[in-house]
Design a protein around this nucleic acid. Structure first.
Lengths: 334, 334
DNA sequence: GTGAAAGCGCTAACAT
DNA sequence: ATGTTAGCGCTTTCAC
């Protein structure tokens, strides 16, 4: 009925309930020392007015906002979005909130973190590279816990690092491919600067080297479909065509399968082994049956949530979340 | 070096720069009346201390937080996440911020909106159903613009509604299938309560009826892969098997294609027409070549961003964002 | 258990 | 152009 332009304040409620404004505050503070009857009366009045404590004011006093800042560098990649969804669900259950930014160009991360800091976020979760040392230091000085995901293992002191087990995964893929009888290997890399891709490649190559196999061929797919298609073509057009390709992520691997099948008429598995990394949902679909190494969203988010919710009391540390080899038809020789 | 536990305030900066605290505020307010030299000096001092205006305090005064609240009901569905990413990019460019919640069960939307309102969000973008009339009324009273996406066309007065053109899309699919020579149709529905699914079905069925075709068969896939697989099986196991299935979204359609192909040995297109809705990225992949009706993320977000940024000056209204038929191999008879 | 009063860090009049 | 003052809506001593 009444058209109000600004929301009711604690004062309004206090007046209506016939108590002091402080009492209103107490009525909404769990465990505050207040008589049951008073709390009742206050809540009644609040209900009537549609009052809701202003969290901005509370945050201002507490010096903590209850907000977790999240920066996503590659919003197109399903894994990050799945992680975001999982984290969001976890945090809302804990009464925390998630302020999200997507970083288009790498260079903007600094700007976004700057904004986030201005909101006095309780913690930062970075799924993007490009934080400058200056800002990083500030985060530590202002004791804002920062969690990085899949970034350089020793970025800045005082940071939490959570990462998938890329090196082990690469090695497991290599071993699996060897067992299946493949002999001439190739690795399709992500963007040159990607630590993730580097680690996966290293695990793969070093395992092969340890087995006395010659170094894999190499192509760059930039973690993108179009580039991966081009990379696959160049690999398969060679005279010394590889008989197995390990792609730095599933997105590229799915593209590789399609190129092999539809453009080169190869039977994936028998003629050409293909493996990816991350174990996206599509990998298990019968159209692809893509061998992959899982990067468990839940495992990652478990760890992240634990750090976030344990109040930053724990010491900064690096966590490697183990994955699992998912052997499927795309690397089945028979 | 110095270990400070709480960030520097405007006072600290003022002291260091030898000016009043208000001057510091002005130095960080674009267009404020302040001498160039003073601003310089303040910025210098701020830089030295690592000062950053506390946005919570500013928001408290302004009564506006610069935060847009977003609620996502189905965080698993790529469209919503793509929309989120697009919106986030747009908003950060405009200096706004996005507070995200995912709603697991429908019933929690109220709770989330309550939280969001407590943060004095400038606007709400709901990609989830289940807001109670009570809260809806409060949003309007507190003049918080609310944009709903793909929800009932006339939800609450004072709301902005943005939706894809589901009815037209359904009709276009029907017409296309008829032209391709399919004659016995089926519709695979989403969850019973989904307005989106209902609209798509209505457009489809009514167009068919208008052409004198008998009513399509029907199965329910709940917008989920597993359920869609089961639904497809039940449809294809019938004696009077349909020769064309229109699925309420692409996710289900992709599953349907695989069941038809791998379980029933059908050649999709020739033996069975399949169409979806949304035009996900996967639809264009050669493995599927799925006919779909696009639901343009950018078109939707354009409209949403316009509402959000034009300061809620425009009148609440409903917008239908047009899509486009993407005819592909999955409905090609020849 | 409750109220009065002092801020949290900032912006917005109001003076000068 | 700048400093002073008064809040924004809340939490938190501190009396009582």
């Amino acid at each position: 009925m009444s058209k109000r332009t600004s929301p009711p304040s604690a004062h309004d409620v206090a007046r209506l309930a016939g108590v002091s404004q402080a009492a209103v505050s107490r009525a909404f503070t769990p465990g505050a020392s207040i008589a049951k009857a008073t709390r009742e009366r206050v809540h009644q009045a609040a209900q009537a007015l549609g009052y809701r404590p202003n969290l901005l004011a509370r945050s201002l006093i507490k010096g903590q906002s209850g907000i977790i800042g999240v920066v996503i560098g590659a919003p197109r990649y399903p894994f990050f979005l799945a992680a975001l969804a999982a984290l969001s669900a976890r945090m809302s259950k804990a009464g925390k909130h998630i302020l999200v930014y997507t970083a288009e160009g790498e260079t903007t991360v600094d700007l976004l973190v700057e904004h986030l800091l201005a909101y006095r976020v309780d913690a930062l979760f970075l799924m993007a590279a490009g934080l400058s040392p200056r800002l990083a230091r500030q985060c530590v000085e202002e004791s804002v816990p920062v969690i990085t995901y899949n970034l350089p293992a020793e970025p800045l002191p005082g940071f939490f690092a959570v990462a998938g087990d890329h090196v082990t995964g690469g090695a497991r893929i290599a071993e699996h491919m060897l067992q299946q009888g493949y002999r001439r290997f190739a690795y399709m890399a992500g963007p040159p600067g990607s630590r993730t891709s580097q680690d996966r490649e290293r695990g793969f190559s070093e395992h092969l080297a340890g087995r006395g196999v010659e170094a894999p061929l190499r192509a760059v797919g930039f973690f993108q479909r179009e580039a991966a298609i081009a990379a696959t073509r160049s690999l398969l057009a060679r005279e010394d065509r590889p008989d197995a390709i390990f792609c730095g992520n599933d997105h590229m691997a799915l593209a590789a399968i399609e190129v092999a099948r539809f453009e080169f008429g190869l039977q994936v598995g028998r003629d050409l082994g293909v493996a990816g990394f991350d174990d996206l949902e599509e990998a298990a679909w019968p159209s692809f049956s893509l061998t992959s190494y899982s990067l468990p969203v839940d495992g990652v988010i478990d760890r992240v949530a634990a750090i976030l919710l344990d109040g930053g009391e724990n010491e900064p540390a690096a966590t490697i979340v183990p994955g699992e080899l998912k052997a499927r038809g795309s690397t089945r020789r028979g």
